[in-house]
Simulated assay, not measured.
Amino acid sequence: MTRDPVEDALSKDEICSAIEGLSDEEWCRLNKGSSALARFSSLSPEDLIQEAIVRALDGRRKYKRDLQMIVFLMGIMKSIVSSEAKASERHKEISLQVYNPGTQEEYQAGIADERATPERETIARLDLAKIKSEIPFLFVEDSEEVQLFVMGVVEGMTKEEVQRISGLYGNEYDSARRLFRRRIEKAFPGGW
């Protein structure tokens, strides 16, 4: 029996209550995640969180009951950054003023470090648009830390950034990497 997607989505009041119910640790992780994502955006981390909350409350994004609120908000922030990147690709306008999370000011843009990692190589073989919509759902049953790890990897964050937002270090991080690879290979045998 299939569940009705409308019944799976929370109402505006329920979403508001879930956001208000975020713990200090979850807010800390959300702030770390927004700081990492803001590197790829013209928005500051605070503005990125604010826009994600606005979109969650105005109904543009449906919040499924089985998804954790922090994962939902991180997904919205990723979507905002992704949409902004796609828009800039279409318009090819270059801004030399980019938000610097270190100084919390705008600064002249530098060259990003694009070193290949195993996660980036896996993602490069797949269609990025499909990944952003499909991969997070492969990890809905996993812990919040693993879900944040997956979001970081899909967004192309560095190992250090992924570790910071997910809270996974050492063996836990390595286990999450293996889980990620296996799940992707199982879901998409032979690529996209």
Rank of each mutant, 00 (worst) to 15 (best):
M1Q: 09
P5G: 04
V6W: 07
D8H: 08
D8C: 10
L10D: 02
C16P: 01
S17C: 05
A18P: 02
A18N: 08
L22N: 02
S23H: 13
E25W: 12
E26Q: 15
W27L: 11
C28D: 15
L30M: 10
N31G: 09
G33M: 05
S34V: 05
S34T: 08
R39I: 02
S41G: 10
L43E: 00
L43G: 01
S44Y: 11
L48R: 07
L48K: 05
E51Y: 14
R55D: 13
L57D: 02
L57C: 12
G59T: 03
R61D: 10
Y63D: 02
L73A: 07
I80L: 15
S83P: 06
E84S: 06
A85T: 12
E89Q: 15
R90T: 01
K92F: 14
K92M: 15
Q97H: 13
E105G: 11
D113F: 10
E114A: 10
A116T: 09
P118G: 03
I123D: 00
A124D: 15
A124V: 00
R125H: 10
L126V: 00
D127N: 15
D127I: 07
D127T: 11
E134V: 06
V140W: 07
D142A: 07
E144S: 11
E145P: 06
M151S: 08
G152C: 01
G152R: 03
V153N: 09
V154K: 01
E155I: 03
G156Q: 02
M157Y: 05
M157T: 02
E161W: 02
S166L: 06
G167N: 08
Y169T: 12
Y169R: 12
Y169P: 01
E172Q: 14
D174Y: 08
D174F: 06
F180P: 04
R183H: 00
I184P: 01
E185Y: 05
E185W: 03
K186S: 06
K186H: 08
F188V: 03
G190F: 01
G191H: 09
G191T: 00
W192P: 08
W192G: 11
